[in-house]
Amino acid sequence: MLNKKKSIANTIFLVLIFALTLYSVFHGEDLPAVLRTIGEVNPWYLIPGTAGVILFIWGESIIIWYMFGTLDIHEKKRTCFLYSCVGFFFSAVTPSASGGQPMQIYYMRKNKIPIPVATLVLMIVTITYKSVLVFVGLFVAFFQRGFVHKYLEGILPIFYLGVALNVGCCVAMSILAFHPELAKWIMMKGLRLLEKSRLMKHKEKRTKKLADSMEQYKATAAYFGTHKKVIFNVILITFFQRFSLFFVTWFVYKAFGLHGTSIYDVVMLQAVVSVSVDMLPLPGGMGISENLFLIIFKTVFTAGLLLPGMVLSRGIAFYVQLLFSATLTLVAHVRIGRGREETTETCEQQAG
């Protein structure tokens, strides 16, 4: 598990961001009126919206199950679903989603899945996950200029920053995946530079740990080279997974009885929000996601429905997802059981 001090710090940071989000969104607003408006929506549209959240989590679990199968690891689909819930919960409550994958590795290791294998699978999941956002961001930026000028003028710096950060992340991870020797050379040179500039003390243990961790990425490169069809299938599933969450806002839009904006515009606007905030160091993009929604959807949700629309859309897409994944994380902890102490220590090293 994450050590206690880090857990306490993350909890304090999460509560602080949540409080600031509530203040920035509802300050000066008539909260009872917002709640009354939400209470008048057509609830039948919220069912497929909530289903989209479940499909989002389920999509990743299918990818994990599918890739385990290609590596001759026969895990149950429901167990992979628990792994996904663990990942989404800890990603939602830690800055930059830093806690998700280490905790997934922790639970996978307790089920006797080797850490290098778990790391390989989750590395590919992350690359394809980010690649979909990069594709959406670049497509909108270069081929949807009318869309950009119509809706995004007020958030262009944040949008372009989000695209750039996601592109940078994908490039860095692709170097790790496709050119592990080059990545190892860059990382070792960087470490020596930090040591020579006296920003870090030289430690043989640290150098060896870095070298050993870089060796793990050779397996990723080998997998990409020999499983091209698998990677293609994973990308297709990831597109389905990501857009199942983006469609939540469309169902919220219809729940208010609104019309006049195309399904394409609503879904792509929600995708833009995800592209913009995905790489920012905020738990679940709290604060910035809500405020971006209020800026770019102001011409989509008519007067008086913008704030209720944001509350309902964000409430389903993030907070329902958070509560659902939190509940199943507890189930995972009970079902998979407590691992050995050395397993915990190993995964804390992965997280650190």
Rank of each mutant, 00 (worst) to 15 (best):
L14A: 15
A19R: 05
V25F: 11
L35G: 05
N42G: 02
Y45P: 00
S61R: 03
I62W: 13
I64P: 06
W65P: 02
G69L: 09
T70S: 13
D72G: 01
H74M: 03
F81Q: 11
V86L: 06
F89A: 02
F90S: 02
S98T: 15
Y107W: 10
T126K: 13
I127D: 01
I127A: 01
S131F: 13
V132M: 11
V134Q: 02
F142S: 02
F142E: 01
Q144E: 13
F147K: 00
L152P: 01
I155A: 06
I158N: 00
Y160F: 14
V163L: 12
V167S: 03
P180M: 04
P180F: 09
A183K: 10
M188I: 12
L194Q: 15
S197Y: 14
R198W: 02
R198A: 15
Q216L: 15
A221R: 14
N233A: 04
V234P: 01
T238M: 07
Q241W: 06
S262H: 03
M268H: 02
V273W: 12
G285A: 08
T302R: 14
L306S: 00
L323W: 04
A326I: 04
T327Q: 05
L330Y: 11
V334S: 13
I336A: 08
G337N: 03
Q350M: 08
Q350C: 05
